[in-house]
Structure formats: structure tokens, C-alpha cells
């Protein structure tokens, strides 16, 4: 085959190749891609009974039972950037014959309260424990405040002095985190 025909053949072939392309697509849609995982994570749990309301060292009554835990996950950058809503579920079962006030205080690194949840608990009995469910839905400004937190303080407050408490206060809780990434 002579040279002109050879060149013509490849020119046509390359032209055909160049006609191939992408149609009916819009790669700008990549900007609209949003991962929106919803994560369920256990939160805090405890069981308080009679022994917890007395100081084992002094024998004195403790009208405020308190404990603190670090909770640094809220302070992680990906949580601060991408968490849109958080829903806390607190399930409290009280079989003690007195009422309580439970407080969940979220503190920042300077121990300042940035978010707080308070749940009153009615008195119950061993035969008929009282179940209290509280859902705390946090979004918008609340999320901005919550994600400043790095600690959680839990206070269980007994409104008045008592002689004897039978039964227990039991807490189970979880958080549903709604992300948009």
C-alpha cells in the first residue's frame, strides 16, 4: 500500500476515535453528593441503689450524687463540621419510693456548661417501677453548642433528706447522630 493511502487510512481512523465522547452526563452533580449516615451509639448507663446515696467514708447522706466523664467525640473536627442533628434517648426506670431530678450537663474544656438536659423522675416502687423516657432533639444552634463539649457531668438530685431507700434508679441511654458529609 502506498504512503498516501496509508496516511489517509489512519487519519480517518483517528477521526473516528475522536468522535467518541461522553454525552448526557453532568459531572457537576458531584457537588450535590451528600453522605448522610445516621449512627446509633450507646451513651451513658448506670444503676444507683441505696448504697450510692451514702458516703462510704463518712456515712453522711448524699443529696446530690454526681459523676463526670470525658466525652471527646463531640469535640472531634468531623463531628463539629458534619453533625447536623443529635437525638438523645434517656430511659430511666425508678423503683425507689422517692422522686429525683437527673441532670446531664455538657461542659467545654473550661468546665463551662454549653448544653444541659434535666429530667425529673417520679417516685416508684419495687412492685411498680416508673419508666421515664426522654428524647432530647438537638439541632441548629443547639448542635453548635453541643459540639463544644468535651465532658459530661451527670447529677442525680434527691429533693429532700430520706431515711431509707429501697429500690434503684436505672438509666440506659443512646444517641442518634445525623451527619451530612
Amino acid at each position: 500500500m502506498n504512503k498516501p493511502i496509508y496516511l489517509l487510512f489512519w487519519s480517518v481512523l483517528i477521526m473516528v476515535c475522536f468522535t467518541s465522547c461522553v454525552k448526557d452526563t453532568d459531572f457537576d452533580q458531584a457537588d450535590d453528593i451528600v453522605l448522610s449516615p445516621v449512627l446509633e451509639l450507646d451513651f451513658i448507663y448506670f444503676t444507683l441503689d441505696q448504697s450510692d446515696y451514702f458516703n462510704p467514708n463518712t456515712g453522711e447522706q448524699r443529696l446530690i450524687v454526681t459523676d463526670t466523664t470525658d466525652f471527646e467525640i463531640l469535640n472531634e473536627s468531623f463531628v463539629r463540621d458534619d453533625l447536623k442533628r443529635a437525638e438523645y434517648l434517656f430511659k430511666l426506670e425508678n423503683s425507689a419510693p422517692i422522686s429525683f431530678l437527673t441532670e446531664f450537663r455538657f461542659l467545654n474544656e473550661n468546665d463551662e456548661v454549653v448544653y444541659e438536659v434535666a429530667i425529673p423522675i417520679s417516685a416508684g416502687s419495687i412492685a411498680a417501677p416508673v419508666l421515664t423516657e426522654h428524647i432530647e432533639n438537638i439541632e441548629n444552634q443547639g448542635i453548635l453548642e453541643l459540639t463544644l463539649a468535651s465532658k459530661v457531668v451527670v447529677n442525680v438530685i434527691i429533693p429532700s433528706s430520706f431515711e431509707n431507700i429501697e429500690g434503684a434508679l436505672n438509666l440506659q441511654s443512646k444517641t442518634t447522630y445525623f451527619f451530612e458529609i
Binding site: 451513651f43 448506670f46 470525658d70 466525652f71
Partner: peptide, 23 residues
């Protein structure tokens, strides 16, 4: 297995730091 943070509510003396549940 992970089932969250179990608080024990210890009676702390003055100056005693809280239990390090998270770590």
C-alpha cells in the same frame, strides 16, 4: 464489646479526680 459509659458515682474526696471512663 462496647455498650457505652457506665458511671459508678464514686464518693470523691476533695481534690480527687473523677474516674477516667472515656480513656
Amino acid at each position: 464489646n462496647l455498650d457505652g459509659i457506665e458511671l459508678l458515682f464514686p464518693a470523691l474526696s476533695d481534690g480527687e479526680s473523677a474516674y477516667d471512663y472515656y480513656n
